[in-house]
Design a protein around this nucleic acid. Structure first.
Length: 164
DNA sequence: GTTGAGCGTT
């Protein structure tokens, strides 16, 4: 197909520019409102959609952010890819899929866990520990706001004035 | 309060 010097467009290797960004590698505790406040800085958003597991209702660890402007989306992609949210390094790209898929008929099609090299050999985890409620950008352009850590409280139902 | 990577439900 086409030329072998050029990869297909619309694949994960070559996402076609879009107003929709895919955000991957998220902590399951990162909420839409967190993502909204982060990506909002680059331009108005249409919506933020964290993909939830149908049965558990928990985040599957990735999300889609819809910008109104494709230009803002491109800027946000460059600025936010590689940033850290809740202790996870996220990857941001133009989404290759547009809309949600039709409901999955089967059971969770998770990857067969070939534990061949991950359970061992990655053992830098001891003592490391994530603080877990901060995000920061690899680029100096992005500045964390002073309210950064408080969003977690909102996400867990804490509302000022209603008592703790 | 999980750790690999992961492109989607109403």
């Amino acid at each position: 197909p086409m030329s072998n010097r050029r990869r297909h467009i619309g694949t994960r290797d070559n996402p076609e520019p879009s107003k929709c960004l895919g955000v991957f590698g998220l902590s399951v505790y990162t909420s839409e409102r967190q993502l909204h406040s982060i990506f909002d800085k680059f331009g108005p958003l249409e919506k933020v959609q964290v993909v939830l597991d149908s049965k558990t209702g928990k985040s599957r660890g990735f999300a889609f952010v819809y910008f109104e402007s494709i230009k803002d989306a491109a800027e946000a992609k460059d600025e936010c890819s590689g940033m850290e949210i809740d202790g996870r390094r996220i990857r941001v790209d133009f989404s290759i899929t547009k809309r949600p898929h039709t409901p999955t008929p089967g059971i969770y099609m998770g990857r067969p866990t070939t534990r061949g090299g991950f359970d061992r050999g990655y053992g830098g985890r001891g003592g490391g520990g994530y603080r877990g409620d901060r995000y920061r950008s690899p680029s100096p352009r992005y500045r964390q706001r002073s309210s950064g850590g408080r969003r977690d409280y909102y996400d867990r139902g804490y509302v000022p004035g209603l008592g703790v």
